[in-house]
Amino acid sequence: MSTTGKKSWNWSLWIGFLFALAGFLSYTFFAQFPITRDFPWANLLFFAVGGILLVLGLFRAFGKPQVYRGKIFGAILATLGILMFAFFSYVFFYVLRQVPPSTGAPRVGQKAPEFTLSNQDGKEVSLSDLVGRSKAVALIFYRGFW
């Protein structure tokens, strides 16, 4: 970029890009709270604000090129923003939904199938042991501590 000294800093492009980046990277934080985990409201809000600012920045860069900078890096930042949004949406709305149907899983009203497995101390524990000594048992299948 040559003699751009007189042109104004196109802040809206950079701030918009930072918002998009925040939307892209912050899900692990928002996943701690059910309301922002079950549906990524917070992330989509970041992307929305980022998108508005990026569009505003591009309008400035291309509409008033004599006043604002950013024709080239604006296009690059906007493309990166779109790619991050696309990848985020693909993972959240497609990849995370690729769950097996589990049509053969035990249903309400059935007896829970009996099993015996090692507990955290290597001791064998049966479901019937747990049921026998409790009012109720919450049986949770998870993936690597989440």
Partner: peptide, 12 residues
């Protein structure tokens, strides 16, 4: 991921 709640008779 799956969660089951089982009563004292072993019924889901």
């Amino acid at each position: 991921p799956a969660e089951f709640f089982i009563d004292s008779n072993g019924i889901i």
